[in-house]
């Protein structure tokens, strides 16, 4: 089974102090650490597990500048066979729809039985590229997948619904799945592993190579655009307890006693 996995390189922002840049349309990424989007890491692992069971090849694709080779190499070290980077100044400003068009243009030339993406990306959080891509490629798809079983040319998948409920669906290959976190335990990537694939050539394709025009991608080819970024209004917020550790613990015990927190 030949699998394509679409992966994204995103800044780690969970514990970072974010700054909106001068354009007001992006954050200042200087000093931020970048890594593979968490959902995509699970998608790569899912592809490798399927390959281990079924054979075939894995191609990883990422849209972005040369730095994206880091996440592509990481995926190669995990067990992917080929990597492709899609890059062009014209891609700048692409929304989920334009991004799906770019990926679709690249994928139509690569043989595939299955395409995997993450459910969403940690930075823009659209949760839309995978499903839009499936529509453009006219493939059956399922979003929010937490389990995959393959039998012949049929997949049986679980989808995560709300409140702990799941749904079981069957899909006919070729198909596209968007992968939810927690579906597996992504393998560890060692420095040795990365070194082993350091020399592996990673191809790059631009807008013309993909048979697209500049009008179809980037801001021009998008259906939406960011006008302005701003920080969410801060609510009343918590009463912050200060003091020495002993004083903090003492204050917490008092609150717990008052609020029924000591059962």
């Amino acid at each position: 089974m030949d699998i394509i996995v679409c992966i994204k390189r995103v800044p780690e922002t969970a514990e970072a102090d974010l700054v909106i840049d001068g354009s007001k349309k992006a954050i200042d990424t200087d000093g931020l650490v970048f890594s593979i989007n968490e959902w995509d890491n699970y998608a790569v692992e899912a592809a490798i597990q399927l390959k281990e069971a079924e054979g075939g090849t894995i191609t990883v694709i990422s849209v972005g500048p040369e730095e994206n080779n880091e996440v592509l190499r990481r995926a190669l070290a995990m067990g992917a066979d080929e990597a492709l980077r899609l890059t062009d100044p014209a891609f700048e400003g692409s929304d989920a729809y334009a991004m799906a068009k770019i990926l679709a243009a690249a994928i139509k030339d690569i043989p595939h039985d299955l395409i995997l993406t993450g459910v969403q990306a940690d930075d823009d959080g659209f949760g839309a590229v995978g499903v839009a891509l499936a529509q453009m490629l006219e493939l059956p798809y399922a979003a929010l997948v937490t389990d995959i079983k393959k039998e012949g040319d049929t997949l049986t998948v679980h989808r995560e619904l709300e409140g702990g409920l799941e749904e079981v669906d069957t899909l006919k290959l070729p198909a596209l799945l968007t992968i939810q976190t927690g579906i597996n335990e992504p393998r560890y990537v060692s420095i040795m592993g990365i070194r082993r694939v350091a020399k592996k050539e990673i191809g790059a394709k631009g807008v013309a190579d993909l048979g697209l025009s500049e009008e179809e991608v980037g801001l021009k080819g998008s259906l939406s655009q960011i006008e302005e970024l701003f920080f969410p209004p801060v609510g009343e917020g918590a009463e912050i307890i200060e003091g020495t550790m002993d004083e903090k613990a003492e204050a917490l015990v008092k609150i717990l006693k008052e609020r029924g927190g000591i059962g």
Partner: peptide, 19 residues
């Protein structure tokens, strides 16, 4: 909606955004 809306938008090229 996450399993439906992006496909609808892509199919009819409806300007859309999510979440």
């Amino acid at each position: 909606g996450m399993d439906f809306a992006p496909a609808i938008a892509a199919k009819w090229k409806i300007p859309f955004t999510t979440d």
